[in-house]
Design a protein around this nucleic acid. Structure first.
Lengths: 214, 214
DNA sequence: TGAAAGTATTACCATTTGGTAAACAAAAGC
DNA sequence: GCTTTTGTTTACCAAATGGTAATACTTTCA
């Protein structure tokens, strides 16, 4: 068939491998992942992987960067929105996925969390995750900082508040994935609203201006 | 040598295997755990494991229950303390280990968290974790409920507050373990105080009665 | 056209891995 | 004491696994 765009350009192969790795990881889990499983998710034979990547370790490191890039690329920002609204949008994206309801959001989260936990046994993965985590938390912290500067939020340590929100999000996702608590993101959403956002608004501005409970 | 107490009583063997499994898991991580690794952590040969457990899967399930029992057994309660103090004690234990500074607390946490995450690929482990998690969260929720009943905490949903605290604790531990953020428990401690406890005390009772920031 | 470079397939393998079978030791029952 | 049961060791293995070498196909470009 038409080989004009698909299959012939070898640059695609690496992406194919990454997606195959994602699928295999998603089905078998990290601890039971065999190179063969990845091969079976591809059109091509599993040995091509060895041509493009230098063994399983190298593959996994590349994949980690791949899935992290995807995660960060899916975050949409709107710097002009009022801080409270902007914060809500960010948190919502983290808890429920990008707005355009990507089909595989929770599959990706599952893989992401498994790699995250595995980082405790792998210094290289830990380093990659640390850079990524700083960006994610920083992105939320910035919104809070902005809110404080504008006088919408009370004067508190934005790092701590940002870290707290990031932690709550992370825990809720882990709970949904590991324990099957499908309502965890929803609960986290409400808790962030009741305990964190409310507290941030405490003596900044009077609440009820733009719809608080949703 | 004296075989009066050690080695001859076979009931100990299963415990030896459990502790060897813990050590092996702690060193190699779940994904790289081989039966051989466990054997090398024991006095006896690795084949005894097959006599006492029905294969790797059975071993891991038993170990999961073992480490969960240990976790729950290490929690010390004092039903008579005032709710706020009692809550602090519980949270402190979860974040910094039992008071008597158990040597291997974080090693155990590391293994615990890895198994927790792995539960997303194993229905049996998920079920075991769910029962355990309910007890842990329930234990914190009870304290909050008690505080509300006594009028110390404001009237809010104790389930939500208990879940939130549990989530924050869990995330902080994961962050310390996976990212190496050694200050995560400390940050979580402060955040729980600033955002959750303060909020719970909001219109329940005037603060400053028994030393709030520690 | 045809050599060179790049990419994918087939065939193959050394090691590793979980697990078993038979021999051996030590209690326990009678 | 002798047999039976329980627990441990030694010797062994079939299957699985990550990886390689040689081969074939395909594109590039001189």
């Amino acid at each position: 068939m038409s080989k004009s765009e698909e299959g012939s350009v070898p640059a695609d192969t690496r992406e194919d491998i990454m997606e195959a790795t994602f699928r295999a990881l998603s089905e078998h889990g990290y601890s039971d992942l065999r190179m063969r499983d990845i091969g079976e998710e591809m059109e091509m034979t599993r040995q091509v992987i060895h041509y493009h990547y230098d063994g399983k370790q190298d593959l996994m490191s590349s994949f980690l960067e791949y899935i992290i890039d995807q995660y960060e690329g899916s975050v949409e920002v709107d710097g002009d929105a009022p801080p409270r609204k902007e914060l809500e949008v960010r948190v919502h994206q983290c808890l429920f996925g990008p707005g355009f309801e990507e089909f595989s959001h929770w599959d990706r989260m599952k893989v992401y969390h498994e790699l995250f936990t595995h980082a405790q046994n792998d210094a290289e993965h830990r380093a990659i995750f640390n850079e990524h985590y700083d960006r994610i938390r920083g992105s939320i912290t910035e919104v809070i900082e902005d809110g404080i500067d504008r006088g919408v939020f009370r004067d508190t340590d934005p790092e701590r508040a940002g870290q707290l929100i990031t932690d709550i999000i992370h825990a809720a996702r882990g709970r949904k994935l590991s324990l099957g608590h499908d309502d965890a993101p929803d609960q986290a959403w409400r808790s962030i609203d009741e305990f964190v956002v409310d507290s941030l608004l405490a003596d900044g501005v009077e609440p009820g201006a733009d719809g608080s409970d949703a």
